[in-house]
Design a protein around this nucleic acid. Structure first.
Lengths: 95, 95
DNA sequence: ATATATTTGACATAGTTTGACAAGTCATTT
DNA sequence: AAATGACTTGTCAAACTATGTCAAATATAT
């Protein structure tokens, strides 16, 4: 889990930006960005879009990581049946 | 979506049981079972277990359908990126 | 040591989910 | 055509969960 947060942190550090700077841009508290990067809190869809814009990165890529985190959170409590359930869910996508 | 509800209805009808009978066993309102079967409401994990017991079917199989529904619900609003996100999430399971 | 950056925990509040209830439809029986 | 039985639908309060902020704690850099 936490593909999104790791990616955001990587992008932010590469550009030498502070949490506070990202926070100011997307108009939330610094603590929230910190939590998002460490996977302690989920970003909203809209926040992901704004972060992508500010970090000048591909919006769709970030949203994909965000969604992957959501999917993983769904099955993390059910390791025994997760694989089989994923297989079933996947059928929806092949159509 | 709604693998679980369809399966429950199928099992219930095969055994000629009424909604009200299932409802009584798992101690909820009939309306709730109706909604679960039609996918209007999610069953709780515990309800799935109790339904499996009462309908004399494999608990793990029902829980797998229940989880598949939850996974599908996660990506249904994101059709464009769902496939790629599923691919990423899947990596967790191959380990 | 000080200043700056980040993390943590607690909190209020906003938002969502839950299950029950009452009223509704629809099909069958009397 | 009224009554009955099975199921469905809409609404509501209560329970639960998520959200973002604040203040304080900790870590890092100068």
């Amino acid at each position: 889990m936490n593909h999104l947060g790791q990616k955001i942190r990587e992008l932010r550090e590469k550009q030498n930006l502070l949490l506070r700077q990202v926070a100011a841009q997307i108009e939330v508290d610094t603590a929230l960005i910190s939590k998002i990067e460490r996977g302690e809190r989920k970003a909203s869809r809209q926040q992901v879009i704004e972060i992508a814009k500010y970090l000048k990165t591909n919006e769709e890529e970030l949203l994909t990581l965000w969604l992957a985190d959501k999917i993983e959170a769904t099955f993390v409590e059910e390791p025994k049946i997760a694989y089989q359930a994923m297989k079933i869910a996947n059928k929806k996508l092949e159509k």
